[in-house]
Nucleic acid binder design. Sequence first.
DNA 1: CGTATAGTTGATTTGGCTCAACATCGGTGG
DNA 2: CCACCGATGTTGAGCCAAATCAACTATACG
Lengths: 249, 249
Amino acid sequence: MNKRRKTPLEIENIEVNSCTIDLRMKIIHGLPFFQNLSDKEISQINKSFSDTHYNTDDIIYLDGEKAARLCVIASGSVKLVKQNRNGNEILIDILKPGEFFGNLDPFEGSIYQETAVVQTQACIMKIDTGNFRNILNTYPSAALTVLDITLKRLRESQEIVKQLSSYSVESRVAYTLLKLSEKLGEEKDIGLLIQIPLSRNDIAGMTGTTPETASRILSRMQKENIIQTGRKWLAIKNIDLLNKMIDLK
Amino acid sequence: MNKRRKTPLEIENIEVNSCTIDLRMKIIHGLPFFQNLSDKEISQINKSFSDTHYNTDDIIYLDGEKAARLCVIASGSVKLVKQNRNGNEILIDILKPGEFFGNLDPFEGSIYQETAVVQTQACIMKIDTGNFRNILNTYPSAALTVLDITLKRLRESQEIVKQLSSYSVESRVAYTLLKLSEKLGEEKDIGLLIQIPLSRNDIAGMTGTTPETASRILSRMQKENIIQTGRKWLAIKNIDLLNKMIDLK
DNA sequence: CGTATAGTTGATTTGGCTCAACATCGGTGG
DNA sequence: CCACCGATGTTGAGCCAAATCAACTATACG
C-alpha cells in the first residue's frame, strides 16, 4: 500500500475574508424565517448583523454563558457540544453554511445551552436578541417559522430520548449515521461519504456511548460491508441494511 | 394496623360539567401567551375554543395521528405518554388545569408526537390549528411567548438526553422526583407530597428504566429516610439529600 | 520519517434488565 | 362489614450489553 492520503474527504479551500456583502445577503435571504421578505427588507435586516471570522477549534460561545445572540453560518462549519459528567462530550449537531444556532429566544435572560466550536474555519454572522425580537415582532410570519423550526428540533430531541431509553447502541449508531448521511452525505465511488471529519469520539457523543463501543460497532458494520470507514471519515455502502439495523434487535 | 385508607392522596371531587363560561375565560386568560390581551380580545378568542368532557383513561389523541388541535386543560389532569419498542411506556409529562398540549405548530401537516390520556376526569378545551395560527398572526407577542415556551421544552428534553447518556438510574430518579415535587408537591405532615397517583411504572417511564429497578431505588431511598412511599403515592422527606443524589455517583 | 493522535481489540467488571416468586393494598361484591 | 382477588409493589437470582481498563496498531501531519 502506498503512502498517499487515505482519507477520501475533500480538503476545503476557504477564503479567509469570505463574508462579502453578497454572501451576507444570500445567507440572510436563505434563512427559512426570512424567505418571504423582499430584497429591501433583507437589506434592512442585514444592518443588524455583524460578522466575525473564526479559525478551527475557536469557541464561539460556551455552555452556560448569558445568551445574547443568534448566530448564522456564512461559511465553514460549526459543532454544537455539551459536556456530560464523565468528561465525555455529547455532540448535539454539526452545522453547515446557512444554518443558525445560539439564542432563538426573543426574551432576555436565557443562557446558551451548549458550546459552539468551529470545526472548519468559518465566518459567523450574529444578531443580538433585541434586534431579532424586533424583527419577529415586525414580521409575524417569521416568528411562526421560527416556532415551526423549534418544534422540529423538539421532536428530534424527543426521538433521541426514546432511543436512549430502549434501543441498543447498535441501533442508535445506525440511526445517527443515517441522519448524518441525509444531511451531509455525498455520493462518491466509495459510497455515500459523510463530508466532515467524524471521529469515533464524535459518534460516541451522538449516540450516548463510549469511543471503544462505537469503534467495535463500526468495525462490525465494516465487516458486514454496510459501511467503509477510516480515521475521521465514514462512507455508507448499504443504506438499506443500515435502515434495517435500527429496528432490528 | 387498622383497615383505613393508607394513601395520603386527597380524593378529588370533580363536577362533571365543569366547563362554565367563567372557567373558560379564566383558563384562556391564564394561558401565558394570552396574558397581555384585553377581556374583549379574550372573549373573541374564546369563540374559537370548543370543550369536551372526558373520563379517566379516555384517550384525547394518539401518537401518530394528524395533529389538528391545541388542547388546554380546564379541569382534571392529563398524562402524555409515548410507547417504546419494549412495550414500556415513556411518560413525558403530567399536566394540570391551565396547561396546554397537542399541536402548537402553526403550520398544517404535523402529527401528534405522543398519546394524551386522561388521568383524572377532565374538561379539555380545544382550538384548531388554523384558528390558532390566525391568533398568533394577529398578536405577535403571543407568538413570541409560544416560542419561548417551546424553547423551554426543548431545553428540558435536552437535559433528559444528557442524563440518559451519562447519569445512573438513581440520579435520574432523584432528578425526576425533584421536578415532580416542584410542579405538583404540597406540604403535608408526611413531607412534600406529590399530589397525583404515581405508580412504579410511571416513574420507570419517566426515567428510562424498568418498574423493578424503580422499586429497588425507591426502597433504598425510603430506607435512608429520603422519601416515604406507598402504592401510587410518594412524599419527599429530605429534599437536600435528594438534590445531592443527582450529582453523586 | 517520526511522533502525536486516533482507532482497534481483548479481558474484566458491573449496572441494570429479565424472569420469577411472593407480598401487600384497596376496591368490590356477597 | 369483611373476605377475596386483581392490580401493584417487592425482592432475589442469573444474565448480558456495554463500560472500563489496558495494551497495542495505524494514520496523518509536520
